[in-house]
């Protein structure tokens, strides 16, 4: 059985069909790419998987359970975490606090634990800080723990957003254009980092325009154009697929 399975997923906005009857799947410990020209419906697909949009029709299965129409916080709780194409960190929270928000679904202190500073609060808080620091270290931001996230340079904000998503220990990590706005060095570093995630046993679905990144880390790739899936396969097949070339050239991208 597939870890994430998408069946006939469709989303319309008024007269516009942003995602049209898309089927795809992601298996455990796979790194899968999702590409396509701007406006192809990639982000909309992410928004449906993560519960921000309710699909017009179709079905989403995570570990064989129907998750269609669940609320975003529930989806994260179940094990799907994401980053945003336009970074959405918590600007006036420190890097450490941003990552600690990622730990929210994995912790349980109540407001009464916190007001009364119970043992549960204290132990959990200590473990959280330690865990969050470990994750910051993984993305190389340990020295920035006390910086407000709004003060971090762009590339570091992207990394922090990935760290925040990883903190929820997701079964699947969805990355929406993680290399956008990064320079060549940063992109190369990010490529290595995502590759490393596979070694940690993680499963990743990544939207990306940087073809070098996509082709070097993805085991399988899906291609969307005007909301419809036009191709799927291993990087080699995608690179030589005439429809894919047409979709990209046709848009001059």
């Amino acid at each position: 059985m597939h870890k994430l399975q998408i069946e006939g997923l469709t989303k319309t906005f008024g007269g516009l069909t942003a995602v049209n009857n898309v089927a795809m799947h992601v298996d455990d410990n796979e790194i899968v790419g999702l590409i396509g020209p701007n406006g192809a419906g990639k982000t909309t697909l992410f928004n449906m998987i993560t519960g921000l949009y309710t699909p017009t029709s179709g079905q989403l299965l995570y570990q064989e359970k129907d998750i269609t129409g669940l609320k975003p916080d529930k989806i994260t709780d179940i094990g799907i975490a994401r980053t945003f194409q336009n970074i959405r960190l918590f600007p006036m929270m420190t890097a450490l606090e941003n990552v600690m928000i990622g730990l929210h679904t994995r912790t349980h202190s109540t407001m009464f634990d916190s007001i009364l500073r119970t043992k549960r609060h204290r132990t959990e808080e200590k473990n959280n800080i330690q865990r969050a620091m470990e994750i910051l270290e993984m993305v190389g931001l340990e020295s920035k723990q006390d910086e407000y996230s709004k003060n971090l340079p762009y590339g570091e904000q992207r990394k922090l957003e990935i760290a925040r998503a990883m903190a929820s220990n997701p079964g699947i990590l969805l990355l929406d254009e993680p290399a956008a706005g990064m320079n060549e060095n940063e992109t190369a570093e990010l490529t290595g980092f995502i590759k490393g995630l596979k070694g940690l046993g993680m499963t990743v679905l990544v939207i990306e325009h940087d073809m070098r990144l996509v082709m070097s880390i993805c085991e399988r790739i899906y291609v969307l154009d005007y909301g419809s899936k036009i191709a799927e396969g291993v990087p080699k097949e995608i690179q030589s697929n005439p429809q894919v070339i047409e979709a990209y050239l046709g848009k001059g991208a």
Binding site: L52, F90, S168
Partner: peptide, 18 residues
């Protein structure tokens, strides 16, 4: 932290499981 995250960006907070 959950409360502050709602102030900062409600949609992102919800997407992080709040």
């Amino acid at each position: 932290r959950a409360l502050i995250s709602i102030r900062e960006d409600e949609l992102a907070a919800e997407a992080m499981g709040i």
